[in-house]
Design a protein around this nucleic acid. Sequence first.
DNA 1: CGTATTTATGCAAATTTTTGCATGTAAGAT
DNA 2: ATCTTACATGCAAAAATTTGCATAAATACG
Lengths: 117, 117
Amino acid sequence: MTDYKHLSQRLKLMAHPERLRMLDVLRRNPECVCHLEALLGRPQPYISQQVRMLHRAGVLKSEKLGQNTFYRVSDPEMLAWLDLVLGAVPVALLGRHETATACVCPQCQREPVTLYA
Amino acid sequence: MTDYKHLSQRLKLMAHPERLRMLDVLRRNPECVCHLEALLGRPQPYISQQVRMLHRAGVLKSEKLGQNTFYRVSDPEMLAWLDLVLGAVPVALLGRHETATACVCPQCQREPVTLYA
DNA sequence: CGTATTTATGCAAATTTTTGCATGTAAGAT
DNA sequence: ATCTTACATGCAAAAATTTGCATAAATACG
């Protein structure tokens, strides 16, 4: 018995242009909210809300580093869906569990941080 | 450059419990509207509307047989997505391009029809 | 032709989602 | 302790989607 309602709820998380873009970023590297703010060009509360939806649904996991909270896609099912829909991430670019990208947002101009070393 | 807006629009078609259920039926066998009405337990105009959305988006193709219109999932991308999300259809059950199921709805009590022979 | 059967369409009400923004909070820096 | 910095939360307005239903259109059939 397939649970269509449950599946559709999870699919809806992905079926949103900004969240899809966010997931595409977060499946590559863990990023903090201010990065996402800069990368997606949206105000911080907006980013936090979308992140929260995904986090509460178990799609994202968070890791606090200094004053920043880094999020990444942790759900294997969602990762598989993203691979099919967006194309698999080239191994060379797969920074998951490795390092966060350098800080590109105007707020925090500092060095790249190593995560999950 | 990934077209997130376009992808999310297509994903939304699937991210709806009734449409997902409908797609799960129509990826196996072509079915007419009155079958779907019986299988999903929803009024005919409701079914027709959802079918129309999917048809206009190029996800379904239609084939008229007698007084019935049979719909099936024709879009390869959508079929691949459905395989991942719902699990692949066992080869034994893969009636696509083969035959329609016997008529199970109260309205039309008649024989199974061969399609795409 | 007239009638029945099957499917399509139009439209408004109801519901859900999205978005913007004001404000709250926690933790580190000075 | 106070002040930033980074992020979270609450809530209501706006927008999009869903749903129900009345009715229309199309086609087969007698």
